[in-house]
C-alpha cells in the first residue's frame, strides 16, 4: 500500500459517493453542490494521472463558470422542491438494474484487457519539456491549431445562442433609436398655426 494507491482509494470512493448524491438528492441545489465536490475530487485524481493543466482547468472553468451557471439557473427558476414522487419510485429499480448490468459487463471487459499492454508503444512523441502545460500548449498550437480555432467558434456559438434564446424585449423600456432621431424633419415637429390673433 503506497501513498498513491491510498490517495486513489480515498478520493475515488468519495467521488462515487458524491456522484450517488448528485443523482439521488431531491433538492437541485444540493445536486449542484455535490457535483462541484465531485469535480474537485476528480481534479485531484487527474493530478495523480499527471494532467496538471487539465485539473486546474477543471476547477477554474467547470467549478468557476459552468457550475456557477447551474446554480444561477437553479435560483432563477422557481421550482418547488420535488418530493420523492411516483415516477422516482417507478424508475428506481430500472436505474439500479441498468447500473448493475452495465457495470458487470464493462468491468468484466476491463479487468483483463490491459494486463499485457505495452506502455511504451508510442511514448514520448510530443514531449518537449518536463512541464505538462508546456507540452500541451505545444501540441495544441501546432498539430491541433485548426481544432483549437473551431473550439473558439463553438464557444462563440454558445454565447450567441444563449443570448438569442433568453433575450426578450421589454415594451416598457424607454430607449433611443438613433435612426429615427436622424430621420426627423422640420414638418414632422413644427406646426405653424395661422390666424391665431382673432
Amino acid at each position: 500500500m503506497n501513498i498513491e494507491l491510498i490517495t486513489f482509494i480515498i478520493f475515488s470512493s468519495l467521488l462515487i459517493f458524491t456522484s450517488i448524491k448528485v443523482i439521488t438528492s431531491s433538492n437541485p441545489v444540493l445536486s449542484a453542490i455535490n457535483l462541484v465536490f465531485s469535480f474537485f475530487l476528480s481534479a485531484v485524481l487527474w493530478l495523480l494521472l499527471g494532467a496538471e493543466f487539465l485539473s486546474i482547468i477543471l476547477i477554474l472553468v467547470y467549478v468557476g463558470a459552468v457550475m456557477v451557471l447551474f446554480l444561477f439557473v437553479v435560483m432563477m427558476l422557481d421550482i418547488n422542491i420535488a418530493k420523492k414522487n411516483a415516477a422516482y419510485i417507478k424508475y428506481l429499480p430500472l436505474g439500479i438494474g441498468i447500473f448493475i448490468v452495465f457495470n458487470i459487463l464493462i468491468i468484466l471487459f476491463f479487468i483483463n484487457t490491459f494486463e499485457n499492454i505495452n506502455y511504451n508503444a508510442i511514448s514520448s512523441i510530443n514531449i518537449i519539456s518536463e512541464s505538462n502545460t508546456e507540452n500541451l500548449g505545444f501540441v495544441l498550437f501546432t498539430d491541433y491549431i485548426l481544432e483549437f480555432e473551431i473550439a473558439g467558434l463553438i464557444l462563440l456559438l454558445g454565447i450567441l445562442s444563449a443570448i438569442i434564446l433568453t433575450y426578450r424585449k421589454n415594451p416598457n423600456n424607454k430607449y433611443q433609436d438613433p435612426a429615427r432621431q436622424i430621420d426627423v424633419r422640420k414638418k414632422d415637429r413644427l406646426k405653424v398655426i395661422k390666424g391665431l390673433k382673432e
Binding site: 462515487i16 456522484s19 450517488i20 448528485v22 443523482i23 439521488t24 437541485p28 445536486s31 447551474f70 439557473v73 437553479v74 427558476l77 421550482i79 420535488a82 414522487n85 415516477a87 422516482y88 424508475y91 428506481l92 430500472l94 436505474g95 439500479i96 441498468i98 447500473f99 452495465f102 457495470n103 464493462i106
Partner: peptide
C-alpha cells in the same frame, strides 16, 4: 453508469 441511472431516475427535473 451512475449518470445513466440518474437520467432514468430523475424524470421530473431536467436540471438534474
Amino acid at each position: 453508469t451512475l449518470s445513466i441511472a440518474g437520467i432514468f431516475i430523475n424524470r421530473k427535473n431536467i436540471l438534474v
